[in-house]
Design a protein around this nucleic acid. Sequence first.
DNA 1: GATTTGTTATAGTGTATATAGAACAAGAAG
DNA 2: CTTCTTGTTCTATATACACTATAACAAATC
Lengths: 126, 126
Amino acid sequence: MIIIDAESDIPIYVQLRTQIMESIVRGDLSTGDTLPSVRGLAGDLGINMHTVNKSYHELESKGIIEIVPKKGAVITANKDKKISKKRLDALSKELRPLVVEGLINGMNKEEIHELITGVISEVREE
Amino acid sequence: MIIIDAESDIPIYVQLRTQIMESIVRGDLSTGDTLPSVRGLAGDLGINMHTVNKSYHELESKGIIEIVPKKGAVITANKDKKISKKRLDALSKELRPLVVEGLINGMNKEEIHELITGVISEVREE
DNA sequence: GATTTGTTATAGTGTATATAGAACAAGAAG
DNA sequence: CTTCTTGTTCTATATACACTATAACAAATC
């Protein structure tokens, strides 16, 4: 179930991209599954086709889905494969300001790890 | 030392805010220290006064500095104080999509913890 | 053959980012 | 006290991004 909050300061295409990724992590969507068409999903969510298209292409650039023109988008994410160094570096760069925010507020390494553990549980269970 | 990359897709005021926070974490800036005036820093960095002002006010809203009108901005970050639940929740929400990105790429809890540990070391040492 | 698919193009609206200049009142410094 | 500097506030402009809207196209599907 995907819910878009039009009032959020998080762009719609980011909300959609994130929620699809979470669905895969939770197992609601699996490798091989086909995503709805950009027009169909846009209609269901009440948003524009191009916004959905943008989300799909970002997922493709992350290696999570494969878009076959005139056919559809198939999930290719492989949780058994090892993450590439390129994506690992990108992740580090994005994590950095958040880690700094924790450290500056007095969190130590253990507390940050606990926070991450909590987030992992949230993502898997919700 | 603060370096602004005008070509980056990261807004200047975010770059500045982040680098000031990293300076505090590293110890280059400490509680009680005064930040340069918005006009002075803007001149040094070759950016607009209003951009620096925006960064300062964001730092203030995070409780990291206190802006005393007509006087200056003083660092109030207290690493001995415990982080508030509000900030902890905000951090969780921001961390979530990055954690998802790791999980979807096959990382397990331990690998994510190792990544975080690496980031913490980077921030503290660089 | 008709429908649906993703793609491409153009256009419009609203918001965010960044710059610029000016003016103001209050603190600092001479 | 006078001068300078301070952060604040206001207006204005240019650019980029986000989102929507509409249209047309070629290929796959039915």
